[in-house]
Computed example of a mutant assay.
Amino acid sequence: MVRTPLTPWERARGERFGALLREARGGRSMVEVAAAAGVSAETLRKIETGRAPTPAFFTVVALASALGMSLDALAEACAAEGTDEDRALSA
């Protein structure tokens, strides 16, 4: 299966998501958070660094739960920082 390339806005959104997860993780180790979410530390590392900018929904839910984050607030924070021009590129 061939995936369509991500737009610049989608890549930037993935980077924002990773930064939000790193910030929410605070002093907790990556291994600790990944184990609490039921994902591998490698998966979390890829998401946090933006190398996996479009994680599966259930991975996002599990990470948000492990970090005590609201999905609504997380979605808003990831989408809010994109510019209108960035969004137009993804259309």
Rank of each mutant, 00 (worst) to 15 (best):
W9Q: 13
E15D: 09
T43F: 00
L44F: 01
R28W: 04
L6G: 11
R3D: 15
A77C: 14
T59A: 07
E48R: 03
T49R: 12
L63I: 11
L89Y: 03
F58G: 10
A75F: 13
S40T: 13
A91L: 14
F58C: 13
K46C: 05
L67F: 09
D84G: 04
V31L: 14
L6D: 13
R22N: 07
M1A: 13
R3M: 14
E42T: 12
V31D: 15
R16T: 12
T43V: 03
S29C: 09
R28K: 10
V61I: 12
L6A: 15
L74K: 07
A34S: 01
A52T: 14
A79L: 11
A66S: 07
G50D: 06
T49W: 04
R13S: 05
V39H: 02
F17G: 05
A12P: 01
A24D: 05
P55A: 07
L71V: 14
S65I: 02
C78Q: 11
W9E: 15
M69Q: 15
F58T: 15
T7H: 07
G26P: 02
A19L: 14
L71D: 11
A66Y: 00
L67D: 08
A12L: 10
L20K: 12
A66C: 06
D86E: 14
P5I: 10
R45L: 08
A24V: 03
A12M: 06
G68V: 07
L20N: 12
A52P: 05
E85A: 13
L74N: 07
P8M: 11
A12Q: 06
T43M: 02
A66N: 02
R16A: 11
M69A: 12
G50T: 06
T49V: 07
V31E: 15
A56G: 13
R28V: 01
E32Q: 15
A91D: 12
W9N: 09
R45Y: 08
L74T: 09
A64K: 06
D86F: 01
A36V: 00
M30I: 11
A91N: 10
E23A: 15
P55C: 06
A19T: 12
A80F: 06
R11W: 09
E42M: 09
G82C: 05
D84E: 12
V2F: 13
E76T: 13
E81T: 12
E32V: 11
G68H: 06
R16N: 08
R25I: 03
G82H: 03
S29E: 08
R87H: 00
L71R: 13
E10N: 03
L89S: 07
E32M: 12
V39G: 00
E15Q: 11
E81V: 09
R22P: 03
A36E: 05
E15N: 06
E81H: 08
R45V: 05
A62V: 02
A88I: 04
T54W: 05
G38M: 01
E48Y: 04
G38Q: 01
